[in-house]
Write a protein that binds this DNA or RNA. Structure first.
Lengths: 176, 176
DNA sequence: AGGCGCATGTAATTAGTTACATGATTCA
DNA sequence: TGAATCATGTAACTAATTACATGCGCCT
């Protein structure tokens, strides 16, 4: 049910197509949620059936038709209600690398370092992209508090991860 | 398939019952994975069918019988193979609070502060428990590198979260 | 000519959650 | 006497992933 409110949040800012929702979701929510276009389209259909959103069909002669979604009054109410009333579900992380970390004792130091370098590279790439997105976003003066806060979260998360990786490398190599 | 390797990692350290696996999993892996006893028991059955683990049945007169699981040779090989060969899947986070953050602009400052305080309380509680677990673990001189690294990750994660919350509060209240 | 972006969906499968189900022992 | 811990499982359901499916316009 949480994905539903993530999507409702996106559509609440301005009316958009399903395609836009997917794009915005992937750009702005990677830091704390994830989904695919197939799940998103399916969820949009359910949300419409539940009368939280409605669409206006735009027929574009040559290019494919599109559906512009917007919130219904019921959708607006439900979004606010959810935000302030619904008890918070615990954060769920699925980080494969940290599973690998638990079995470091059975790997060689070379193997561990290779894995750590891989993940450092990944996080650096993500951090760079996040910072670019933040700069782009700030320069546009869109001034959306929500995006401002979550993009900052993304940056802090990656920085924490990288610092932990460096600490882990040191910890591993000191033990040798 | 990742859960499978998390469980395989736990059993690789010492032979344990399914019940132990659940307990160890919840204590040591909350920081980067989550599951339930029902999913874990089901996965253990599948792993046994796939010849990665085997069990010895211990009949305990009065208390319930138990199955002591241990890795097969094939299980040991597969765990190492997975760790060094299998390409890393991207981290997936599901953080409901950050979804709520995206719609801060439609909430009142009072409501936002209530939500932030709630999440700060939650993270402080988690951080405290993690630190206790680390102290307990370090005092036991068990010296498991994997647990040492992941518990440190848990601490850094919560600390980062709390700092972000404080920054967010300031950001919100400055805008007023 | 081939890839990317726009634009939408369904089908099949796997993963994960919640509820149901049992029953002894130990401790307050 | 009631809750917690030990100990195991299945059933029903929901969420999520991966694959299948189409097709135009634009750019290189």
């Amino acid at each position: 049910m949480s994905l539903r409110y993530a999507l409702l949040g996106i559509i609440s800012k301005k009316p958009v197509t399903g395609y836009d929702v997917v794009r915005i979701f992937k750009q702005q929510m990677v830091y704390f949620w994830n989904s695919t276009h197939s799940q998103i389209y399916t969820e949009l259909h359910k949300m419409e059936k539940d009368n939280l959103i409605e669409h206006e069909l735009v027929i574009q002669g040559t290019s494919p038709n599109k559906k512009i979604y917007s919130l219904t009054d019921s959708g607006k109410k439900d979004l606010i209600r959810w935000a302030i009333e619904e008890p918070l579900k615990q954060t769920k992380i699925k980080d494969e690398f940290l599973i690998k970390t638990t079995i470091f004792p059975v790997l060689s130091v070379t193997e561990i370092n290779t894995l750590l370098d891989e993940v450092i590279e990944r996080e650096e790439r993500i951090l760079k992209m996040t910072k670019q997105w933040k700069d782009h976003f700030v320069s546009q003066k869109e001034n959306d508090t929500g995006t401002m806060l979550t993009v900052e979260y993304g940056i802090r998360y990656s920085e924490m991860y990288l610092e932990w990786c460096k600490w882990a490398k040191q910890y591993i190599n000191e033990k040798e």
